[in-house]
Computed example of a mutant assay.
Amino acid sequence: MIPINILDDNAAIGTDTRVLQDIHLKTKNLAIYQRGMAQLKGELAQAAKRPMECRANGTVEEIIFSLSSYLTNVLPGHVGLLGDILNLLGLFEQVTKVSSFRVSLATVSTNMCSRFHADNNELRMLCTYYGQGTLWLPDHAVDRKAYLTGKGNQNIVPDEGLIQQVATGDVVVLKGALYPESTPVLHRSPNIEKNGEERLLLSIDPNQSLNLPL
Results as ranks from 00 to 15, higher is better:
Q46V: 06
E160V: 12
L148T: 15
G152V: 01
G152A: 08
Q132Y: 10
C54H: 00
Q34R: 15
R144W: 14
T149I: 03
P76M: 04
L137E: 00
K97Y: 09
A146T: 07
Q94N: 11
V142C: 10
G161C: 11
E122R: 05
G36A: 11
R115F: 06
A118V: 02
N57L: 06
M37S: 15
T15H: 13
I2C: 10
P180D: 01
F92L: 01
P184A: 00
T59Y: 10
L186M: 11
S109P: 08
Y129H: 09
S189L: 03
L44P: 05
K194I: 11
M37N: 15
L67D: 02
C113W: 11
I2M: 13
Y33E: 02
R35A: 08
P206L: 01
E61M: 09
I163D: 04
I85T: 01
E93R: 12
V157W: 00
N207G: 13
G42F: 14
A106M: 13
M125D: 01
N120V: 05
S66C: 08
T27A: 13
G152P: 09
D143L: 07
R50F: 08
Q46G: 11
I192L: 05
L75S: 06
Q46Y: 06
Q34H: 15
L201A: 07
N211Y: 04
I32R: 00
G196R: 05
K49G: 13
S69R: 15
T134S: 05
N121C: 10
G36R: 06
Q21F: 14
L200P: 03
S114L: 07
Y129P: 03
L86G: 15
D119E: 08
V103G: 00
R35Q: 15
M1N: 10
K26H: 13
Q208S: 10
V166W: 03
A48C: 12
K49R: 14
V142G: 06
M112F: 12
P3R: 03
L162V: 04
T96Q: 04
T17D: 12
I192W: 07
P51W: 02
P51C: 05
G42Y: 13
L201I: 15
H117E: 09
V103H: 00
K28E: 03
Q165F: 04
V166T: 00
E61A: 14
I163K: 09
I13T: 02
Y147P: 03
T27E: 11
P158N: 05
E62P: 03
L105V: 01
D16Q: 13
M125F: 11
A12T: 06
N211E: 10
T27C: 11
G77C: 14
G90C: 12
R199H: 04
L135N: 10
G152R: 08
C54Q: 05
